[in-house]
Amino acid sequence: MFFDDLSSFLAMGGHGQYVWLSYGLAALIVAINFIGPALTRKKIIKDIERQLRREQT
């Protein structure tokens, strides 16, 4: 471990805001890329299910 304690880890020697902002944005864009397609998939499957049900009745 490079840092002595948690508070110095969060402070990053005064550069904390820049480092954490960067990692936060990275997490955001990674999350969008994971969640976006998953939501689309759910919607597509729901649409197909509805179509199937309509054909059965």
């Binding site: 490079f2 840092f3 990053m12 020697g13 005064g14 480092v19 990692y23």
Partner: peptide, 28 residues
């Protein structure tokens, strides 16, 4: 990679801890 880069890698002698942004900037 992220845990290593954020917590264990030493700080850069010139740029200090801000260089840790490299671990997301360069891959992207």
């Amino acid at each position: 990679g992220v845990v290593w880069g954020l917590a264990f890698a030493p700080a850069d002698y010139l740029q200090g801890n801000s260089f840790r942004i490299i671990y997301v900037h360069v891959p992207a």
